[in-house]
Nucleic acid binder design. Sequence first.
RNA 1: CGGGGCGUAGCGUAGUGGCUAGCGCGCCUGCUUUGGGAGCAGGAGACCGGGAGUUCGAAUCUCCCCGCCCCGACCA
Length: 592
Amino acid sequence: MIQRMSSLFVRTLREDPADAEVPSHKLLVRAGYVRRIAPGIFSWLPLGYQVFRNVEAIVREEMNQAGFQEVHFPALLPRDAYETTGRWSEYGDNLFRLEDRKGNDYLLGPTHEEMFTLMVKGEFSSYRDLPLSIYQIQTKYRDEARPRAGILRGREFVMKDSYSFDLDEVGLEDSYNKHREAYISTFDRMKLDYVIVTAMAGAMGGSRSEEFLANSPHGEDTYVRCDCGFAANVEALEIPMTSFDPELDLDAHFPAAHAEQTPNTPTIDSLVDLSNQREDLARSDRPWDASDTLKNILMIVKDADGNQSPLAIGLPGDREIETRRLEAALYPRVARPFEEADFAKYPTLIKGYIGPRALGINSPGGIEFLTDPRVVRGTRWITGANEKGQHVYDLVCGRDFESDGVIDVAEVFDGDPCAKCGGNVSIARGIEIGHIFQLGTKYAESLGLKVLDENGDLVTVTMGSYGIGVSRAVGVIAEAHHDEKGLVWPREVAPADIYVVAAGKSEETAAKAEEFASAWDAMGLRVILDDRVGVSPGVKFNDSELIGVPTIVVIGKGLEKGVIEVKDRATGERIDIALDQAVVAVHQICTN
RNA sequence: CGGGGCGUAGCGUAGUGGCUAGCGCGCCUGCUUUGGGAGCAGGAGACCGGGAGUUCGAAUCUCCCCGCCCCGACCA
């Protein structure tokens, strides 16, 4: 079926929409692929919907290829199951809730672990039925606090979510790996540049978890990568303990700790400056650096039962605590910074001058004191002296203080050592396009999904959960494949193979364009024919490039020389092809 | 939820108390034009986000509300 620009339901815009920021959003709107309906909610127009379905088809094919079976749940779900697993409340404001006419609570599904678990529970009851992986491609709803970047982060979006059900860990590992491989094939077909990073599994109660992140400067996720192949989401990154010599004679090696008056040093920078300026404090070997200072940050930690306790975190002064890493490290406990009222309860803590000697579970205050992995035996610090206006120098870990344990929550810098190879990591941004993780028994446990094993014993099924953002993938592909003129779709997801421009007003031009379009259409190629009359060639050229079909054929002036012009959208390369060879040649270009 | 910006025609915008709200794109009619977003002429299209107030007079000033965008917090 030839798509004719003369009747296609599309209107391209000459200017960027005012509310769009990222390239994919601007271009998808300008090229007439999507239109915004409400914040984070979009409609698909014909061209956009074709791309969407092409992307969806890739996902579906790869899932089926892997042996997973497709099912379909409602998006509108009753409260019950989500109440059982606690997510009705856990999900908080992100859950779209509604009531039916009788006042019963419903929700628009943000993800479907509960429903899948219950469905399997209702059908299967024997180990003979496992393993099983089932999936759906479904519209999901999350009332995001801040939808943004057009289609990349909506409140309504389409996601492929699958769930694996296995008898044991070994089976789960196998199902997990199958999904992992299927995801690699899927994203390769989408022509995406992505990395697989280790991610936090803790928040979902599972063990192993990886994210597929498409590289993009507009990505919301920060991850670290290394040339050795190591990659991890910042929240999942583990900094190795700095190595140290347990035998080193600390007394002989370091000067004794000494407290000094350090007025007017409210910040780390001012403390470092003062230390370098004063001859009595300066180091002999090199100037002091912010990383030589140890800052101690006080938090109040609340556990799942609501019990609060103070926690001190000691880390090098050049780094801040990274909130996401802190949350991951403490989960399920949550932390908040110390406030004035908290300081009032611990008179030994002098705000701004807190030092290790006032901390630790064995200290008078009894405050738990955890330190960064860089704070190890034999490291020497400038830190608070627990007296107003004083800092202590040459305070050596292992000699002058001990911590109660390690906490790895400091921000990561570009160039930090790699945990795997010791090289330098770099920091990059990515957009999450897929996430796979091993749920374990969390849902099966709470919803009672058990099967009989070969001994006749009831065992709780172990599960995995795997998602691909289908509608997001459309935006991510657009992010990755565009230039200043417009979109540049990879062929498999493009809304057509060929955009035929009838350039010129002669009847011959129109007739030839029709003829070729029909021939390619008959050969199974997907054709857009720009048959608009009274529209200048320039407009057609611009639209063809904006819309981003991979092959553009221009039929016009060349007819005099007996040729048509074929342009590669991605490279810009143009070639003339003789009329009598054109049908076959273009078909070949589009299918090899 | 905190900070910043903004709401005027389908889209992009001008308009800081005064006459009939202006322009570009797009749209309609006619003529001309047809290889890189054409020209001329004529048209249609706006409860100026909503409400209340100040004023002889409000798109413009005040208050309240609603909505949108960006940064941050948040994000299975």
